[in-house]
Design a protein around this nucleic acid. Structure first.
Lengths: 203, 203
DNA sequence: TAAGTATTAGAGTGATCACTACAAAATGAA
DNA sequence: TTCATTTTGTAGTGATCACTCTAATACTTA
């Protein structure tokens, strides 16, 4: 064929994702992305189109690898309620390089971009719905395990979990204190799940 | 003295606030603000300093007049629980010019600016704390009126109300449907307040 | 009316924006 | 080795960015 690419596409997406995650779409310049990825402009445009298509690809990358990885690691473990708790808490404690206040690329991008770009809005809506589905799965598992009351409406509780998680992620940007955010997480989870458990199990 | 200003400062702040509210800080150019306010650059800079100081003043204006007005109008009415419900719902139905997905300038600005500008972060944190205080006041009033159980912890409920409101405002940017958002509001309020009321009053 | 003062008008500042043109370089296939 | 194909390196595009300079203008006070 011809000359092959001189870089690892996944590593470039990961590095670029961190910049968009930290700075947002508008504040991030192509120069910032060149520095973060080590690519020259010609390579960036040749391989990723333009700033918008690069961002769209990064949203997919973040969804599949970073968020998806956390869903696998924390949400889908043996104890479904413990999984929910760990998923929530690690949103604030597992930030890259220990940076506080970066919250979540999905929530950040909803806030900044959803009303200005329909393709981005639809993509982000799908991610939020996927997250709700995962919460429902965990709640139903907890019902079967008997760690949560069987008569609760999983969909309603899952909705409240997602809304609260989004709200907590917003709050983390003004609070910027991991200890306080973990406590806020635990208070929300206790409020939503705690007093509805089937065996009085309080975490 | 000397030549007086040729414009109404409040009207300029209001018009500029709408632009920042709709577009965010980074996406808004000084040209956008000139068009929206009808002022020339020299007047804008002479009266408001620069883009950042104008934005800081607009955050105060929004807090005092727009958000503050809604607190007075909806939150501080006879029935404190009805006030909470109306305050929540009108966040999505009372948007200027019927635009959907604009959410709230405070939440938008937290998401975009809090980790990049410490003065903005502190200002926004204060606004959020003020809102929580107002929620606590309403909950305590509801206790006295007997419309909510006296043994609840007003601070915890108020925290959950604020977190959920922030989360709902984020959600409104991908959902962009007033009917769905009002239903989501009612579900959250029912979840947080409904089954803790003292007389079984369901709204 | 004249002096003093602040605002407004309009053109223009260098810097940065996303993006591109084009040739050199690097590869696989023939 | 040659050819065909693609990426990379470099310089640079016009547009827009936040912001400013200066003179003309409009007002108050004396």
């Amino acid at each position: 064929m011809a000359r092959p690419l001189n870089f690892d596409r996944t590593r470039v997406l990961k590095n670029a994702a961190m910049i968009f995650w930290h700075q947002g779409y508008q504040k991030t310049s192509m120069k910032d992305l060149e520095s973060a990825t080590g690519l020259l402009p010609s390579s960036l445009y040749n391989s990723f189109g333009n700033k918008e298509t690069l961002f769209l690809e990064i949203l997919d990358f973040y969804t599949d690898h970073i968020l998806g990885g956390r869903i696998e690691k924390y949400l889908r473990q043996e104890d479904p309620l413990k999984g929910l708790q760990q998923f929530f808490i690690t949103c604030f404690t597992d930030l890259p390089r220990g940076r506080k206040g970066m919250a979540c690329l999905i929530v950040n991008s909803i806030s900044e971009m959803a009303i200005h770009n329909e393709a981005i809005r639809k993509k982000l809506l799908r991610v939020e719905n996927t997250l709700t589905s995962n919460f429902i799965t965990n709640l139903d598992k907890a019902k079967q395990a008997g760690t949560i009351a069987k008569n609760i409406d999983s969909e309603i509780i899952a909705n409240q979990l997602l809304i609260s998680l989004n709200g907590l992620l917003v709050a983390s940007k003004v609070i910027k204190d991991n200890v306080k955010m973990v406590a806020a997480c635990e208070q929300s989870l206790q409020f939503i799940l705690g007093n509805r458990s089937g065996n009085g199990n309080e975490h």
